[in-house]
Amino acid sequence: MHIDAWIEGIPPTAVYAVVGLIIGLESLGIPLPGEIALVTASLMAVKGVVSPWGVAICAIAGAIIGDSIGYSIGRKGGKPLFEKLGRKFPKHFGPSHLATAERSFQKWGMWAVFFGRFIALLRIFAGPLAGALKMPYWKFLIANVLGGVVWAGGTTLLVYKVGKSIEPWLARFSWAGLGAALVIGLLSAWIMKRRAAKTHAKIEAEEAAKAAAAAKEPVAD
């Protein structure tokens, strides 16, 4: 069963907790479909099953708390933690993904935490990597709170408003909103994978060049 169908099948009062938990675990560093869970709950709010404010508040809380816990784990474990995870879960925490995430932090600084909230693969790195790179907590907290509010609150509001405007057709085409979210999520994941692949190829080329240069160096007597 897909997670969207599962969420739609649980009691309405449990939806808030489940959405907050999924988003919190994803923000902590566990690859879960937080965006799909959020959009599904927002569509349920359009139908009047749950409150959009309840969904938004729980999603924002999950995002901020999850990222904060991830920051603490990353600060304690440091880069060796990512190296260990990369060996166990190369699909999500491989060296190329980590290198891409690090370059985002070098380019944007604290705002990588904010912008990372909108990119599927970077979202699981933001908190732990910010901690591992020893980003000052107050900087992390500002970007974390702003990112959580804009992403979680904004997504809920957008889906709810759009859903309400097309409510007469939503009963027959409820998949449209979820389909659009899936396309956006897949597109952002594809972009990150391409960047990761390019970074990985560059790293391999640099290492090969260093190895070749070292092989040409004369051996001291």
Score class of each variant (00 low, 15 high):
1 M>I: 14
2 H>K: 14
10 I>L: 13
11 P>C: 11
11 P>Q: 08
12 P>W: 03
13 T>G: 15
14 A>Y: 15
14 A>N: 13
15 V>S: 02
20 G>N: 05
21 L>G: 01
24 G>D: 06
27 S>Q: 08
27 S>H: 00
28 L>R: 01
30 I>F: 13
30 I>W: 09
30 I>A: 09
31 P>A: 15
34 G>E: 08
34 G>I: 02
39 V>K: 03
39 V>W: 02
42 S>R: 08
51 S>Q: 09
62 G>F: 07
63 A>F: 04
63 A>N: 02
63 A>E: 05
68 S>M: 10
74 G>R: 05
80 P>Q: 07
82 F>I: 12
83 E>W: 11
83 E>D: 13
87 R>T: 15
89 F>D: 02
106 Q>M: 12
112 A>R: 03
113 V>G: 08
114 F>I: 01
118 F>T: 09
119 I>F: 00
121 L>Q: 03
124 I>E: 06
125 F>T: 06
129 L>C: 03
132 A>G: 07
136 P>T: 12
137 Y>I: 12
142 I>R: 10
144 N>Y: 02
145 V>P: 02
147 G>K: 00
147 G>D: 05
150 V>G: 06
154 G>C: 05
154 G>K: 08
154 G>R: 04
156 T>M: 13
157 L>K: 01
158 L>W: 06
163 G>T: 10
167 E>H: 09
167 E>A: 15
168 P>S: 06
169 W>K: 13
170 L>C: 09
171 A>R: 05
172 R>M: 01
174 S>Y: 11
175 W>P: 04
180 A>F: 14
181 A>I: 05
185 G>A: 11
185 G>Y: 03
187 L>K: 03
188 S>Q: 07
189 A>N: 08
192 M>R: 03
196 A>N: 02
196 A>F: 00
200 H>I: 01
201 A>L: 12
204 E>F: 14
206 E>Q: 13
212 A>M: 10
213 A>R: 14
215 A>W: 13
219 V>F: 07
